[in-house]
């Protein structure tokens, strides 16, 4: 239990260890710890930012979805009413066109009839004239008359 040189030897060893620790052990470890701390802090902050961003994007996409759904139903509604209207129009048009065609055909028929009547009248007149001429030029024979008159009648 004597005090001896060990005292000094121990002091020297102690100082050397402290020096080594101060120079080569403490700084790198605390530096790494500090770096890790700030990195974790940064990562947490960026995760927070990412979450906020995600929420924003989510809201945005929901909004867009809602809007597009509304737009789609609006367009559908519009299209449906337009189609109805078009069908209605087409029907009206067709009806009008048919009516017009019927009218036209009817008037054409009338016209044809009129013309045919006119022709007939002219032919009857001509025939009458021809007949009269024949009667005047030739002697009237009853039989021949009759024959001619029958012919005339058949031609009418």
């Amino acid at each position: 239990m004597n005090l001896n040189l060990t005292l000094i030897g121990q002091s020297i060893a102690f100082l050397v260890f402290v020096w080594f620790c101060m120079k080569y052990v403490w700084p790198p470890i605390t530096k790494a710890l500090e770096e890790r701390r700030s990195k974790i802090e940064e990562d947490l902050a960026s995760a927070d930012r990412a979450r906020q961003e995600m929420e924003r994007v989510n809201e945005e996409s929901e909004r867009i979805l809602r809007e597009s759904r509304e737009e789609a139903s609006r367009i559908l509604e519009q299209t449906r009413s337009r189609a109805d209207r078009m069908i209605e129009e087409a029907r009206d048009d067709a009806r009008a066109e048919g009516q017009r065609m019927i009218d036209q055909a009817r008037s054409e028929i009338d016209m044809e009839l009129q013309r045919a009547r006119e022709d007939l009248r002219q032919q009857v007149a001509a025939l009458a004239v021809t007949g009269a001429e024949r009667i005047l030029e030739t002697e009237i024979d009853e039989n021949r008359h009759r024959e001619m008159l029958d012919k005339l009648a058949a031609e009418l």
């Binding site: 001896n4 040189l5 030897g9 121990q10 060893a13 260890f17 080569y24 403490w26 700084p27």
Partner: peptide, 27 residues
């Protein structure tokens, strides 16, 4: 006073070196 305890010195230095070696490895 002019004597040194070899066992004390040996163990303290070996243990101190062990401590610094491990911690330096980590550092």
């Amino acid at each position: 006073f002019w004597a040194i305890n070899l066992d004390t010195m040996l163990f303290s230095i070996v243990l101190g070196a062990l401590f610094l070696w491990v911690f330096r490895l980590v550092a």
